Computed example of a mutant assay.
Amino acid sequence: MAKSLKDLIEEALEDLEEESLKKFKRKLNEVQPEAGYNRIPRGKLEKADRMDIADHIVSYYLQQYGLSITLQVLEAINEKGVAESLRTNAAAADGASGSTVSVPPPTRSSREGAGAGPRPAGQHFVDQHRQQIISRTTLVEPIIDHLLSAGLLTDEQYERVGTRDTIQNKMRELYSFERGWGEGDKDEFYRALETHNPPLVRDLERQ
């Protein structure tokens, strides 16, 4: 009997170490789903085991979109091998069943220099617009949650940003760590801004 996409998602989660599973749940809760879907509540994920998580993914996103979400989150937490294995297994199950499931292609990793928005030669978007990003960001916590999940901030750095007294000082503290990031890391920072403050990013891109 061919395995369902839910079975394959659960098997992929079984391949994650406990720390990676925590990152997966945190990142899954941050995902902004497409119109027509609701985000999985944080409370349902906090104590969920691998089987529960797979059940929630399929319950909230159905099998096809759930597969896409799962692959997106695995790649975001840098579990590229698990994502590729899931993609291969899903494609094989699709062929064996004769169904029309679409298996999403891999995204270019931020660690592999994926582009992230317009930038002038030699300067990254997040550096070009540093002053405005600091002054116009209205909510820092989702951004640093994203960066912690992606491994760009340590727990200590996360706490240092979070304890600053104003939003602008939190962003200044965050930028003190950004100075040591590579291009791929800055791409991930861009994606965090794009996910959690899309109006600001769109406005800056038009400048």
Rank of each mutant, 00 (worst) to 15 (best):
M1H: 11
A2R: 15
A2V: 15
K3Y: 06
K3G: 06
K6F: 01
D7V: 03
L8C: 04
E11Y: 01
E11V: 02
A12V: 00
E14N: 14
D15C: 06
E18C: 00
E18W: 00
K22D: 03
F24I: 04
K25H: 04
R26K: 12
R26S: 14
N29M: 05
V31M: 03
P33T: 00
A35T: 08
Y37F: 02
R39K: 09
R42I: 08
K44D: 11
K44F: 10
K44E: 12
L45C: 02
E46L: 15
D49P: 01
D49R: 02
I53M: 13
A54N: 08
A54S: 07
A54G: 05
D55N: 15
H56V: 13
Y61D: 06
L62Y: 13
L62G: 12
I69R: 06
T70L: 03
L71A: 13
V73A: 04
L74P: 01
E79H: 08
G81A: 15
V82K: 14
E84M: 08
S85P: 05
N89A: 14
A91L: 13
A93R: 13
G95L: 09
G95I: 02
A96W: 03
A96F: 05
A96S: 12
G98Y: 00
S99I: 04
V101K: 04
S102K: 13
V103T: 01
P104Y: 05
P105D: 11
P105Y: 06
T107W: 08
R108C: 14
S109L: 10
S110A: 15
G113P: 10
A116H: 06
P118V: 05
R119L: 10
R119S: 14
Q123E: 13
Q123S: 09
Q123H: 04
F125Y: 14
F125W: 14
F125G: 13
V126T: 12
D127P: 03
Q128E: 12
H129V: 05
R130Q: 08
R130M: 09
Q131S: 15
Q132D: 13
Q132M: 14
S135P: 03
T138C: 06
T138N: 11
E141R: 12
P142Q: 00
P142S: 00
I143Q: 04
I144D: 08
D145H: 07
S149G: 15
A150Q: 14
A150I: 11
G151Y: 02
G151F: 02
G151I: 04
L152H: 06
L152E: 12
D155T: 10
Q157T: 01
G162M: 10
T163P: 06
T163C: 12
R164I: 03
K170E: 12
M171D: 07
R172I: 09
E173L: 08
S176C: 07
G180E: 05
G180A: 03
G182N: 07
G182F: 01
G182K: 05
D185F: 00
D185L: 01
D185S: 10
K186G: 01
D187P: 01
E188K: 02
A192E: 00
N197Q: 15
N197H: 15
P198S: 13
V201L: 10
R206T: 02
Q207Y: 10
